[in-house]
């Protein structure tokens, strides 16, 4: 299989970036996109050129690390897939493919396809947890949680922190990411107590980091690899007004 890549190259955070073209031959349609980049890098290194910096770890769609935009599709042209779960069989032989980092003011580019998403950790640090210390927990079955509630909490908690929701949003809003965590915790009896301060502080931090406002376009839900629903944004808003 043959593909022509247009890859975003940017030497450092401050440098000016641009697309560079690479023609690749001998690809296999079962390769994942990061495996294709491995293939490209091996070639570049042998030619004495600087390989493309990209981050990828678990390669099974759960660590949230590898996300890039492929032909403008955040994470993947496939539905509910991460970049590492995107295989070359998604493209046609001879296609030209653009690869670029997620774009958002709160996700500065570090080099080539690598971005800094620590803003998401800082949002979590403002209350995205239940304040229980080790040793304080009561017997597990003393907290009853209905099957449906547990399943709904899981749906929200499934977020992998990849930032695709931010990257696809025209406002670069982190509402889906933040909403999912707020919703996950406020849904559970053990997380209710801290709901008020949690939502106020996390929303404030979202603004502080330079994420935009949510205008409810629903684009985030469409690209979320875990299929997290925009209903969690509604929950966040409701929790916010309640507080």
């Amino acid at each position: 299989m043959k593909l022509t890549l247009q890859v975003w190259r940017q030497a450092s955070a401050k440098a000016k970036g641009g697309f560079e073209k690479y023609a690749l031959e001998g690809l296999d349609e079962n390769m994942s996109v990061p495996e294709m980049l491995d293939f490209l890098n091996e070639k570049l290194i042998k030619e004495g050129k600087d390989p493309v910096a990209f981050e990828s770890d678990c390669r099974e769609g759960i660590c949230g690390q590898c996300g890039i935009a492929i032909n403008g599709h955040v994470q993947s042209p496939e539905k509910r897939a991460t970049t590492c779960q995107t295989h070359l069989r998604s493209f046609r032989d001879g296609d030209e493919i653009h690869l670029e980092p997620f774009r958002a003011a709160a996700f500065p580019i570090k080099k080539d396809l690598c971005i800094d998403r620590t803003a998401l950790d800082r949002i979590i640090s403002k209350g995205g947890f239940i304040g229980v210390n080790t040793g304080q927990a009561p017997e597990a079955n003393s907290i009853l949680i209905g099957h449906e509630t547990a399943e709904a909490a899981f749906d929200a908690a499934a977020c992998i922190g990849c930032g695709a929701c931010v990257a696809v949003c025209k406002n670069a809003s982190a509402a889906l990411f933040t909403g999912a965590k707020i919703s996950h915790l406020s849904m559970l009896p053990q997380g209710k107590l801290e709901s008020k301060t949690r939502v106020q502080q996390m929303v404030a931090q979202m603004d502080e980091e330079g994420f935009g406002s949510c205008t409810f376009t629903g684009a985030c839900e469409k690209v979320c690899p875990q299929g997290i629903s925009v209903a969690h944004i509604v929950t966040m808003n409701r929790e916010f007004w309640k507080s």
């Binding site: 009853l144 209905g146 099957h147 547990a150 996950h184």
Partner: peptide, 22 residues
């Protein structure tokens, strides 16, 4: 034993029966 208690208290959404038990 205590570990499951700790994880539940943190909000880990383990699978539940319809009755609400783990």
């Amino acid at each position: 034993l205590a570990l499951i208690d700790q994880a539940v208290a943190q909000g880990v959404p383990f699978a539940r029966e319809y009755s609400g038990y783990l």
